[in-house]
Write a protein that binds this DNA or RNA. Structure first.
Length: 560
RNA sequence: GCGCCUGUAGCUCAGCAGGAUAGAGCAACGGCCUUCUAAGCCGUGUGUCGGGGGUUCGAGUCUCUCCAGGCGCACCA
């Protein structure tokens, strides 16, 4: 139920619509002032009365009913307290009925969203710099699906470029089939790194030739390249499985090679393509941007060309209503240019393209650098977190069954949660101290809260679960109810802002409120009617927490 | 130089399309396990919300300007 709307309809102010009033309604800073408030200051001019007088007058006009329990005027604010027991019954019933679907909706029914995320490069192992795009994109995938959208997850593979000529060259000189087969992506990456530090002029020339061979369909070169690609995919797939991430398409850059010409032709037809300094560009000067490079002076395509072709393909194949690119903010300009070019091409769907930009990851001693070996591999981070989780279980709960399985959920959850907890635009300085911290505002804290709730519910099996007729809510209970009832809104908010951290923050908030309740109100030893309510409250909290964490790709162990 | 982003407690960050005394976690110190998992709970302290103008009844939130940091700005992706 939309309380703001309900309250707004009760308030009559001449010349002000119910919608405007609903929009003005805020939440008081302190819950003992009420649940909703209408500041009356802006009506003072229209009504030619003081805000204090307006609030008092309105308070006298509104009769409490089954929904609004109390109306008060205070310092120019009109405060509303809603019927707590009513909200509690409604919320618990909603959660009971919807279960794992609580918080979902059908607002996206019939609409399609494409999300481009993770987009790994062939032959490059995952490092922590790839974590943000992967988990943010994945969370958005789950959030939009939850809201009823048809979602297409796209891993826009970096599988085209001169670096693959270098890679083949390096392999031909120094590589060994068995070693690469055994070492997988790290072995390939070593070859590439070695090429960059040791390659002679002669080899550089060879590399260019190999790249040309790939492009011209040479069998051996393409077989080698396909092999490197499959090794890469096998490697990332393992990580994706652990992180609960999936894709519907792995169409990468090379997929669009034969799809660029129509775009280039159209740019020419529409007179958008100009030759400048030998290259073909779209002039964006009138829009305050540098030109968008479409073809190099040697005629080769560029990043932008392939991205335009990909946008065309996605629009025609999926008919998206929205197309998201989860890519770091370094590429702000690139996407602004691409979107502008689409607009100039007359594509009205250019407005549906969104660059979901996020901050950069660096290390405490500066930027990451594969060359200097200053990298933190994602698999190492995950492994360390899982090990730490296992050690903590060994220490605190050594008799648990499935310790490995639980440690996996806790460790992986911790990695994901850490990457999603702050606003995505913030830069991150990676530190093991931080990811390995399992206290406070962490994923582990949320999971632990669930384990507590689960444990109570286990012990309550077979107990009477009825809620008493004259339900009186303790403040701690009401705080939880309010938070639970706000979950659907939090999900929508996260989707609108492309901001999964909203969900992560929500989960911590709910956990904090539950833990306070858990500590201050006994559940199992409460009186019958009260106990029934508290058990349902516990169950609803657990369910909502599971739903929230699931949207982030985080699992919840029953015990830990 | 131009453009975009960031600047809130010692540290890491929240702050709902401006609203009532600015909040969490970490770190520090002090309490709480013979009673529902102490990966927890409670308490103590700190803020020129980067600086300065402006709009407004009201600005951390909007606007202008300055400062600091990050990123980007033609043939890489």
């Amino acid at each position: 139920m939309d309380y703001k709307k309900y309250i707004a309809e009760k308030i009559k102010i001449e010349g002000v619509s119910a919608e405007e009033i609903a929009g003005a309604i805020a939440v008081p800073p302190n819950s003992d002032m009420g649940d909703y408030a209408l500041p009356c200051f802006k009506f003072a001019k229209i009504l030619r009365q003081s805000p204090v007088a307006i609030a008092q007058k309105l308070a006298a006009e509104i009769q409490p009913d089954g929904v609004i329990a109390e109306v008060n005027a205070l310092n120019g604010y009109l405060n509303f307290a809603i019927d707590k027991a009513g909200l509690a019954r409604q919320t618990l019933a909603d959660i009971e009925r919807a279960g794992a679907q609580y918080g979902s909706s059908q607002i996206g029914a019939g609409k399609t969203v494409c999300i481009d995320y993770s987009s790994v490069n062939v032959a490059k192992p995952f490092h922590i710099g790839h974590l943000s795009t992967t988990v943010i994109g994945s969370a958005l995938y789950k959030i939009y699906s939850f809201l009823g959208y048809n979602v297409v997850g796209i891993n826009h593979l970096g599988d085209y470029g001169t670096q693959f000529g270098k890679l083949i060259c390096a392999y031909k000189h120094w590589g060994d089939r068995d070693e690469v087969e055994k070492g997988g992506i790290h072995a390939i990456n070593e070859l590439y790194v070695r090429f960059n530090s040791e390659a002679t002029e002669q080899m550089q020339a060879e590399a260019r030739e190999y790249f040309r061979l790939i492009e011209n369909g040479d069998r051996e070169a393409n077989e080698l390249f396909a092999w490197f690609k499959s090794l890469t995919l096998a490697y990332v797939d393992k990580i994706y499985k652990r992180l609960n991430v999936k894709f519907d398409s792995y169409n990468g850059e090379s997929f669009y090679l034969d799809k660029m010409q129509p775009v280039i032709d159209e740019l020419k037809e529409k007179g958008l393509l100009k030759v400048s300094e030998g290259a073909s560009v779209v002039d964006l000067e009138p829009y305050g941007m540098p030109p968008c490079l479409i073809l190099r002076s040697d005629g080769a395509s560029l990043y932008a060309t392939r991205d335009l072709a990909a946008a065309y393909y996605r629009k025609s194949t999926y008919g998206f209503d929205k197309c998201l690119y989860v890519v770091a903010y370094q590429q702000n300009l690139h996407f602004k240019q691409i979107f502008k070019v689409l607009e100039l091409l007359g594509k009205d769907w250019a407005k549906d393209m969104v660059h979901v930009a996020y901050g950069m990851v660096s290390l405490e001693d500066g930027a990451m650098s594969t060359r200097n070996g200053r990298v933190v591999w994602l698999e190492d981070v995950i492994e360390k977190c899982v090990e730490k989780a296992y050690a903590v279980i060994e220490d605190k709960n050594p008799n648990l069954e499935n310790k490995r399985e639980i440690a996996e959920k806790v460790g992986v959850g911790s990695v994901i949660f850490g990457a999603l907890y702050n606003n995505k635009i913030k830069d991150i300085v990676f530190s093991y101290d931080k990811v390995l911290s399992f206290e406070g505002e962490t994923g582990v804290y949320c999971q632990y809260t669930c384990a507590r709730a689960n444990s109570v519910l286990q012990k309550a099996k077979g107990m009477e679960c009825a809620v008493s007729e004259n339900l009186q809510l303790a403040p701690q209970e009401y705080e939880i109810i309010k938070t639970l009832s706000a979950f659907p809104e939090a999900v929508k908010d996260a989707a609108e802002k492309y901001e999964p951290s909203t969900i992560a923050r929500y989960a911590v908030d709910l956990a904090q409120k539950f833990n306070k309740f858990y500590f201050e109100c006994k559940i199992l030893t409460a009186e019958d009617g009260c106990k029934g309510f508290r058990l349902q409250l516990t169950k609803a909290t657990l369910q909502t927490m599971q739903n929230a964490l699931a949207l982030l790709g985080i699992g919840v162990p029953e015990k830990m």
